[in-house]
């Protein structure tokens, strides 16, 4: 027996000429919250749907709980209902003709649970999610936050080995989303349920996950813990999700880590690299010191965002983002310093 509950090997899925998922390989450990992050169109939802059995991959192997669910070479493709998973989609998809109670009971009934057991499970799960009052209401009588809780309750009720989440918080407003992250993580961890969690919000993934995989253009580019993925500045598309500044430069001295931005701005980068010629520089807005330093810049725009200012700066031909507590005048020339800058291939 492997320590992994889900193993995906070389999974690919095409839609016509579009390669939605290319050669995806990863394992998910029992009890792990495993997130798939990427911009829209990166293939993350398709990958999730392949695992749930809603889409049929073109190639690859999916093993769940030591049982082969899909194997393109052996012609195995277990239908979704026989995979033993639960699912919380982005829209929550509560069946509008069923009361909350019946929505939650559905998976239990389909899997042949006896009536007494179903009642017990409904009680347990509705208590855990604080929705006992809502059991006799219809979905359209619920607020967004309540609907989301019911969708999670419905997924938890059969005590599945794996829950598939497809951006389940993206339809909530900011405050509710923050709150939902906390209780969702708590309940998944308390019940030791494995979750495969698709989101485009990297901060949500950082908060919730044990491990995060970053997908781009159908390919898995990184699988890391939240701490480590934040350090992966070598993938510009990932860096963009974190809001890093990414600008074009030319490496002029590889030994000293010197790069030229535009015509005259020289910058020293600290990471060991073997990039020559055209390159990309990656640095966080918080890594820019404004008001002193050796690099000339111009303040284009200043916005107060609570506690500090967010600045748009013109550096040669580039516009970069910086944050500072110091108020400075819009339109003024200033000096800046970039405390940490990573160089990567263009």
């Amino acid at each position: 027996m492997t320590p992994y509950i889900l193993q995906v090997e070389s999974l690919s899925k095409r839609f016509g000429k579009v390669e939605a998922v290319v050669n995806a390989t990863f394992n998910v450990a029992r009890g792990e919250i495993f997130s798939i992050v990427g911009p829209s169109g990166s293939g993350k939802t398709t990958l999730l749907r392949c695992i749930g059995g809603i889409e049929t991959p073109d190639e690859g192997i999916i093993v769940f709980n030591d049982r082969v669910l899909f194997d393109s070479k052996r012609g195995i493709n277990i239908p979704p209902e026989a995979r033993g998973m639960s699912y919380v989609p982005q829209t929550w998809a509560l069946w509008p003709h069923m009361k909350v109670r019946d929505n939650i009971a559905f998976g239990l009934k389909m899997r042949g649970f006896p009536r007494e057991e179903i009642d017990v499970r409904i009680r347990e799960v509705s208590k855990a999610l604080k929705i006992e009052e809502l059991l006799d209401r219809y979905p359209w009588q619920l607020s967004g936050g309540q609907q989301q809780r019911v969708a999670v309750a419905r997924a938890l009720a059969p005590k599945p080995q794996l829950i598939l989440f497809d951006e389940p918080l993206s339809n909530l407003d900011a405050a509710l989303r923050e709150e939902a992250r906390v209780w969702l993580k708590n309940i998944l961890k308390e019940l030791n349920i494995t979750a495969l969690y698709v989101t485009h919000d990297i901060h949500e993934a950082l908060f919730l996950s044990d491990r995060i995989t970053f997908m781009y253009n159908g390919r898995i580019r990184a699988i890391e813990t939240p701490e480590n993925i934040y350090m992966r500045r070598d993938i510009p598309e990932l860096a963009q999700l974190f809001g890093y500044n990414i600008i074009k430069a030319k490496v002029v001295d590889r030994e000293k880590g010197l790069a030229l931005i535009g015509r005259e701005t020289l910058i020293t980068c600290d990471n060991p690299h073997n990039v020559e010629g055209d390159a990309l520089l990656v640095f966080a807005p918080s890594e820019i010191k404004i008001g002193y330093g050796s690099i000339k810049a111009k303040i284009l725009r200043k916005s107060f965002v609570g506690g500090y200012f967010e600045y748009s700066l013109k550096l040669e031909d580039h516009v970069i983002r910086a944050v500072s507590e110091t108020p400075l005048r819009e339109g003024a020339d200033t000096l800046i310093d970039i405390s940490r800058c990573t160089i990567t291939k263009a």
Partner: peptide, 23 residues
């Protein structure tokens, strides 16, 4: 009818026939 209403039913254990009957 949103496709997701069917997807959730299928993943939660309903066969096609039962999805048609119940959803």
């Amino acid at each position: 009818i949103s496709q997701e209403l069917e997807n959730v039913a299928r993943i939660h254990g309903a066969s096609l026939a039962r999805t048609i009957i119940h959803i």
